[in-house]
Each structure stands twice: as structure tokens, then as C-alpha cells.
Design a protein around this nucleic acid. Structure first.
Lengths: 226, 226
DNA sequence: TAGATTGTTAATCGATTAACAATC
DNA sequence: TAGATTGTTAATCGATTAACAATC
């Protein structure tokens, strides 16, 4: 059966399932059991069956899962059978990189407009589209459709720009600014905090030494008190 | 007291603490209680105190936390008081965007070399550094130091390139390829899976409709069986 | 049919929240 | 001192894992 609401832990794993199933399908694998998929993905068979059954029973007892069928189902769950009109708001390094990202168009995401405040960028060609002045944003949105806005403006402008996008009717924001956005209930967002990710990497680089130090300190405090 | 090992849930929140404390410090806030910080970050006061106490007691009873001190401590925990030599492996859209990312240098990350296989990119200037042929990677690493490798090659090359980096002595990989890397125990990594993040966004866009459909289907199956 | 593997319920484990004594 | 807020232990909640009946 399916649950009324799915936990974030499960949702975060869905794209991973999709990636692995796509690979398996490409490799011509017809069927897979939860045990085999678990070994491949470093998850337990139990967890995989629980995750999948949030959305319905796509398997077959005694057989396992048909790879192409399961991939298709998860693609549908992720909304990947649809196409999306995308605008890029902020044409800096990241905005341009996203606009030019290859897989993007292949997966049904179409960049329809690019906006930036910087006069030096206006008119510049990004992915075959001339950058428009940020002033034109609201007018453009009244005349064209956009399903997703890529928010790649500086942190200081992020919340104000997000408010403006929500005001103009945008229902989904892919946020690259290092800021936690506050949005109306009917606007969804997901963030890619590059610096957060980098900081987790440096944490892991230093974790061992950090705890050696903390223990050392604790030991010395202990001695002092003796 | 401090724990010998810290859960991923806590580690993921550390950069968020750092970001908010930096903002508070910039705004001139001297002290903050776990309750106030919790309100700001949408966490419970309890969770904040638990998280912080994984690393030691940085607060003061009856007073709260000194913002600059706590920010400094968390920066140290994240390894941000250090400087890092970085190489970019793969000079496509993402590799170049990362190399040019402003905050990067400001935070103590220095791009020392950029590599790519594509002949058309070799010699091209990225962030003031000429792109080198991938062939030169191993020789370069025997002569220079690099703490972190940014892995921004196509998915198909990612694991092989990561193996090569580990072989050459790299101890940390920031992975942008949509692949789950398998690495030796002493090599840490963290990934930024852009497409995964985008797919979570489209999931959220479609979640409501998805469950309406699932319920509809369940209702119809129920009728059939009656 | 026998064997395999799912879907699902129950048990366990870990993370979050609540409570409160310690103490500034 | 009284009030406030931490550090830490205990209770709760939710996610993961185990178990097993259903069934292909």
C-alpha cells in the first residue's frame, strides 16, 4: 500500500534508485531482487522494499522487480516523464553552468529565459539565449510560462528575489544561494548549498584529528582536577 | 562532553549553524540562547544544545552562547581555519564554475591546477590558470601539494578518475559526477548530485497530484472487488 | 509443487524532544 | 540571591531492520 505522506529520508533516496535502475536498464538487466539492488546500493533489502511500497507494490512475489518497469514507475513518481520550462535568475558562474548543463535538456528541462542585474551581462548569450535585465522578469512571467526558477543570485539578494518570483506565480525554486528561503506554502523549493557541501568535506578531512584533540583536552582537564 | 562519533544528521547541520552564526556576528549580535537560535533556524533548542555538545560545552549557564566564540568553534570543527590547495579535474561547465566561485578563495580554498582531457580546452585560462592535459595529472601531483580534488568529469569517467586520484595520494574528493564513488577508507568524499537535487524538486512539485492519483487507483480497485 | 521473494507487520535502533539538576 | 539557560539524562518518536505469511 501507499502512505499518505513520505518522509524526507525516503525522498532523498528516490533519485538514487532512479540512477541505479537507469544504469541497470542500460546494462540490459531485466529483473532484480531487493537483495541484489541492496547490495549494489549499500542498503538493506528490507529498506528498499519499504521505500518502494510507499508508492505501491511494483514487485512480484518469488520473482523480484522488472527493472524497466520499476525505473519507469520511479521516474513517474519523481515527475520525470513531464517537461519543464525553466528560467535562470542570476547569470553568474553557477547560473550559466546550470543553463549549459548537458543532461538538463536531455531530461526534459528547457531553459526559456535568463535574467541578471549586471549591465555587463545583459545581451550576453547563455546557452543560445540572450541575458535579460532583471527589470524584465515580472513582465516576462506574465507573458510566458515557467515551471521552475533557478535562483543563482548572491546570498544578499536571494530572499527578496525569491519573494518576487513567488509573487509572479513561480511554484518551484531551485535555490543555489547559501540561504534558507522562507516561501509561501504552495511554492516548493530545494537547495544546493555548495559551500555547505564543501564544509562537510573539510569536516570529514579533519574529524579524526579533531577528536584526538578533544580527548587530549579532556585528559588534561582530568589531570588538573586530580 | 564530546562523543567519539558524530551522526551524519548532526554533521549536515554544522554548516547551517556556521552560516547563521556568521550572519549574527556580522549583525553585531553578541550573545544568543539555544531557544533564540532555534527559532531562527527552525530547530528545537534541545536539538541545538545536543548538537553543540557533541564537540564540547561552548555555552554558559544562565547566559547562552557568545556568538563570535561559538562561530569560531564551529569553524574550527569544520576545519575552516585552515587553508586548502585544490585541483579541478574536469574543466566543463561545473568545473569552471567551481574554479571561478568567488567565496571559494575568500574561505581559504586555492585552485592550484585545472585538468581536462579535451584538447580544445587545454591551455584555456580558467580562473587565471591554464587548463592542463589529464595526462599531466599524476606527474603534477608528485611535484605539488593538493588537499582536495574537485571531480567534475562525466559520470562514465568518474570512478576511474577517482581511483587514479586516490592512487596519486589525494585524500579528499568533492564529487560532482552523478555516481556513488567507492574509495579507500582513508580517502574522504562528499558529493553534490545536481540532478538528484533537481529530481527532489520535481518530486515535491508533483507529490500532491501523485497521491491523489494513487488514492484514486486504490478506490477503483476497491470498487472492482466489491 | 517447491523455491523464491515480495508486501507488511513487529522489533529494534537511533535521533529528536522533554525534563531537570547544575550553575552562571 | 533570583532568574535564566546550559549540559545531560530520560522519554518519545520515527526510521531502519528483522521476521514471516502471502503468493507468484
Amino acid at each position: 500500500m501507499s502512505k499518505a505522506h513520505v518522509s524526507d529520508a525516503v525522498i532523498r533516496r528516490l533519485p538514487m534508485y532512479y540512477r541505479h535502475l537507469k544504469e541497470l536498464e542500460k546494462a540490459g538487466v531485466e529483473r532484480i531482487s531487493s537483495r541484489e539492488l541492496g547490495e549494489r546500493m549499500n542498503l538493506t533489502a528490507s529498506q528498499i522494499r519499504q521505500d518502494i511500497n510507499c508508492f505501491g507494490g511494483f514487485g512480484q512475489q518469488g520473482y523480484g522487480y522488472r527493472v524497466p518497469e520499476l525505473r519507469w514507475h520511479i521516474g513517474e513518481i519523481l515527475g520525470l516523464e513531464k517537461q519543464y520550462d525553466v528560467i535562470i535568475v542570476g547569470a553568474g558562474n553557477i547560473g550559466r553552468a546550470v543553463a549549459n548543463y548537458d543532461g538538463f535538456r536531455k531530461e526534459g528541462f528547457f531553459v526559456r529565459a535568463v535574467f541578471d542585474v549586471s549591465p555587463s551581462l545583459i545581451g550576453v548569450d547563455v546557452h543560445g539565449i540572450p541575458v535579460q535585465a532583471m527589470d524584465k522578469l515580472d513582465a516576462w512571467l506574465t507573458e510566458h510560462n515557467a515551471d521552475i526558477a533557478v535562483l543563482s543570485v548572491p546570498a544578499s539578494q536571494a530572499q527578496a528575489t525569491a519573494d518576487r518570483l513567488a509573487q509572479a506565480g513561480i511554484k518551484a525554486i531551485w535555490n543555489f544561494a547559501p540561504v534558507d528561503l522562507h516561501l509561501p506554502e504552495d511554492v516548493v523549493s530545494n537547495h544546493v548549498h555548495l559551500s555547505d557541501s564543501l564544509h562537510i568535506l573539510t569536516y570529514r578531512m579533519n574529524e579524526e584529528a579533531l577528536f584526538r584533540e578533544i580527548e587530549e583536552k579532556a585528559r588534561m582537564n582530568g589531570q588538573e582536577q586530580d
